[in-house]
Nucleic acid binder design. Structure first.
Lengths: 190, 190
DNA sequence: CCATAAACGCTAGCGCTGCTAGAGTTCGGG
DNA sequence: CCCGAACTCTAGCAGCGCTAGCGTTTATGG
């Protein structure tokens, strides 16, 4: 019992090590630099060990994405609870969302742009993701009027996501960024 | 002179053939199925021929993206000019944009999601892209009020882009799609 | 305390990728 | 008719995700 639990604990630690190494490598050099060989070298195990923990590279990316969701939820919550009123809450949450995407581009991509084997728009979605979405919803609530809060929050999220990804992909000029965000918020909050 | 021009014409035809083959392959099976080997086989030339026309696979994708921009501009223009008033124009353009992304997912990705060596937010951007953006701008113009039309159109575009990509990536449930779009339009048009 | 079996991590390799060096062929110009 | 330039091909490089199968370590039952 004790020996088995020790082994399980060590396994869990190694799994966490893999996830952390993948995240660090991705954030430092982008996902294209995260190869199973480099990752294995970084955790000082051979390649096949990765596959005893994860079904494939996609699954590792998914695990990193879940971590990212938790971090995002923390940032959003901090921004929302620090705001003195509804208007500054939704503005602060928006800014925090943008800042997160800007500071952690690789993390953001694997969470919301890349295709990863994670359930998203279902009750089985990662709790951390649901928490992040919940923070957006609370910021949107004061402006929902008679509309569905869920659908309206989805719409709000999508706009932020579009602004972030088009800019980061070079499709939108960076200099108008704050203007675009304020134009959107002005229209969204009526 | 005549011989040389004939050769140049044949070269141009072959280049067009490569672009078309890449587009068809991508639209049929996705970009991950577009390998230089399959593409070469499809145009019935060897791999190195591709590199005498394009610097790399990225450049081929960029060429396909430019074609896609032209097609999108046509669709948007048709939707806008067919609308009897401003409100139905912006709604129709939005719906046409969504429909384009839905019908041509691989094309849409290479135009607006993937990283390709194309100038976007500059005067050197492909005229076809500028034309498509111009159609969005004309649809937005009646609702710009005192705001910058350029920045507002960028914001409008970003929202559509976010709705499309989050849904296609499985992050948003498909069933609320039309509701989300109408919620956005209602707030955007005031 | 030892033999056995299971759990474990390793080396080596498969089929693929984008890309390129260099050989071989074709063809227009003098 | 021959030469040189233009052109396309075969073959191969380094790297990718992933896995079969071997060898070692480790925990257990007699």
């Amino acid at each position: 019992m004790s020996i088995q639990s020790r082994r399980e604990r060590e396994r869990a630690e190694r799994e966490k090590l893999i996830i952390t190494a993948a995240r660090e490598l991705a954030e430092a050099e982008g996902w294209e630099a995260v190869t199973t060989r480099r990752l294995a070298e970084r955790v000082e195990y051979s390649q096949p060990v990765l596959y005893s923990h994860f079904k494939g590279k996609d699954a590792i990316m998914a695990a990193v994405a879940v971590e990212g969701c938790a971090d995002l939820a923390v940032d959003l919550r901090a921004a929302r609870t620090a705001a003195p009123d509804a208007r500054r809450a939704i503005a602060g949450v928006s800014a925090a969302y943008m800042a997160f995407a800007d500071r952690h581009p690789a993390l953001y991509d694997v969470m919301f742009s890349q295709i990863v084997p994670l359930p998203f728009a279902t009750p089985e979605a990662p709790p951390a993701l649901q928490a992040a979405f919940g923070e957006l919803a609370e910021a949107v609530r004061p402006y929902s009027g008679g509309d569905s809060l869920g659908a309206l929050t989805e719409t709000f999220w999508a706009a932020l996501h579009g602004l972030v990804t088009l800019m980061r992909g070079g499709r939108l000029p960076r200099e108008h960024h704050e203007l675009r965000l304020s134009l959107f918020l002005a229209r969204f909050t009526g």
